[in-house]
Each structure stands twice: as C-alpha cells, then as structure tokens.
C-alpha cells in the first residue's frame, strides 16, 4: 500500500467533515458575530438520532433523514429560543449561552442514549475503491463528494447570491442591515438552519465509518473552529480551511506519527493566526 495515497484519502474524508463543520460555524458567526460553542452538538444530535432511530429497526435512509431534520431543528431552536431574545447582551455573554446550551445538550443525549457509543449502517455499501495504492470505502467517497459539494454550494451561496450577501451584511453591521430593510432575525434563522443541516449531514456521512456518543459535540466544535480559523472566518475559504486541516493531520500522522499531530498542527494554527492578523494594529476596531 502506498502511504501517501492513503494519507490523501484519509485526509480528504476528515477534510470533508471539517469543511462542513467550518462552513456551518462561519455562517452562524457571520450573521450573529457569536462563536457558537454548541455548533458541534448539531453533529452529536444528528448522529445520536440516526443511531437511535436505526437501532429501532427503521430503514437507514429514514434514520438519516431523521438525523438531518432533528439536527436542523435543534440548531434553529437554540437560536430562536435561547439567543433571539438576548441579542442585546454582550457577545461574550452570548458565547457563554452557547456553551451552556452545549452542556445541556450533552446531558440530554446522555439520558437519551446512555454512555455507550452508537453507530448505524452505511448508506453506501460496497467493496472499497482501490486506486493508486490506496483504498477508500464507498461511504468515504460519498463523504468527500457530498461533503465538499455541500460546503462549496453554501460558500457560493454566501458569496455570490443576493440572499447570501444579505446574510453576511447582517453580521458586518446589524443596524445598517436593518436600515437597508434586511430582516436580520430571518437571516439568523436561515443561518442556523443551514448550520444545523450541515452538522447533521456531517454526522450522517461520518458516523457509519466510526461511532458516536453523547459527548462527541465539543470535539467537533473544536475541529470546526480550527478549520474556520484557518479559513480566517471567511465563507469563501471554509472549504480550503477544512481540507488543509484534514490533509495536514493525515500527513503529519503519516510522516511524524500521531504524537506529533497536535503540537505540529496547532503550532501551524498559531502561525496562521499571526499571519492573518499581521496588518491589524488594534483589536479589529480600526474605524476611526
């Protein structure tokens, strides 16, 4: 087997998931300026839902659709019930609310699913595809294809369409957006629905290849944040951020071992943060 090929396959699969998480996080951040620490919970909620529904003997397709719907409703509920009445609070308080929502979600999932990990069958079954000295399962191909397509579509939607531009304007300057007649609440609703849907999609595609438990959310939030930070919180670059995180993890592991992964990747991350902000003199408040 060719280690480089296998690293590319593995990196692409992880990158697809990271891209989905990152773009969801960025969409929500772009409309609310709030870093949503409960974002990874959409993944956990979706994955646990699919696992539980599939465990009841229902078809895996229905289980997957249930996962997408529940993940989307979950994200919308967090936004509408918890965040919407409190938009006047300082950003740091809003971030703390998302953290509290993540804790509560973890508690609910533990009661619903117990502490043992769950999984559910693959949507795409068949022998792995062998190419160039590596192997990738059909589900993995689907993960890469659907994951990146969805992430690219959302990113194009944000950058190219009028509605997408409205979404972004909401975050740049909510007051000005209101003045321009943009319904900022509706924009945030749409953003959270997109974010939830993508988190659920990531779970439906990835969990059959691994497993999920009640506490999977925080880890996914972190990976989303890292990918989003690599992308400079830019919707146009989210896919690049996810892909580069996935591939660099895979290559560092291949050539330097898993123990080198965190120190190397996060040293790179710090470097990227410093580089991205090299021209900003003061905490982003450059308007004088």
């Amino acid at each position: 087997m060719n280690p480089v090929t296998q690293a590319i396959y593995s990196g692409l699969m992880a990158g697809g998931v990271y891209a989905l998480l990152a773009i969801g996080l960025i969409v929500a951040f772009r409309t609310s300026r709030v870093l949503n620490l409960a974002h990874g919970e959409t993944f956990a909620v979706g994955g646990v839902t699919a696992g539980l529904v599939a465990g009841m003997g229902v078809s895996k397709f229905i289980a997957s659709i249930a996962a997408l719907v529940v993940a989307m409703l979950y994200a919308v509920a967090v936004d509408q019930i918890l965040m919407k009445p409190r938009r006047h609070l300082p950003i740091s308080s809003l971030i703390l609310i998302t953290l509290a929502a993540a804790f509560l979600t973890r508690g609910v999932l533990m009661v619903a699913a117990g502490v043992d990990p769950l999984s559910f069958p693959r949507l795409f079954v068949g022998p792995p595809i062998r190419f160039a000295g590596g192997a990738i399962p059909l589900q993995g191909v689907a993960l890469v294809a659907i994951g990146f397509t969805a992430a690219i579509c959302v990113s194009l939607f944000l950058v190219r369409t009028p509605l997408g531009r409205k979404l972004r304007a909401t975050a740049e300057n909510p007051d000005a957006a209101e003045l321009l007649g943009i319904d900022t609440d509706r924009m945030r609703l749409i953003a959270s629905a997109i974010a939830g849907l993508l988190g659920g999609l990531a779970a439906v595609l990835l969990v059959p290849l691994t497993s999920i438990d009640y506490q999977a959310g925080l880890g996914m939030t972190l990976r989303g944040i890292i990918a989003a930070a690599l992308a400079g919180m830019s919707p146009a670059l989210a896919v690049v951020g996810g892909l580069s995180l996935g591939l660099s993890e895979a290559f560092v592991t291949t050539y330097f071992g898993a123990l080198a992964q965190d120190p190397v990747i996060f040293a790179i991350l710090i470097g990227v943060a410093v580089w991205q902000t090299r021209k900003i003199r003061f905490g982003g408040s450059q308007r004088a």
């Binding site: 296998q6 593995s10 998931v17 880890g219 990976r223």
Partner: peptide, 8 residues
C-alpha cells in the same frame, strides 16, 4: 480524536 485508522 481520529475517526479513521486507515493510515495506521
């Protein structure tokens, strides 16, 4: 945190 062990 790895979700895939194919490299290893």
């Amino acid at each position: 945190r790895a979700t895939d062990a194919s490299i290893q």
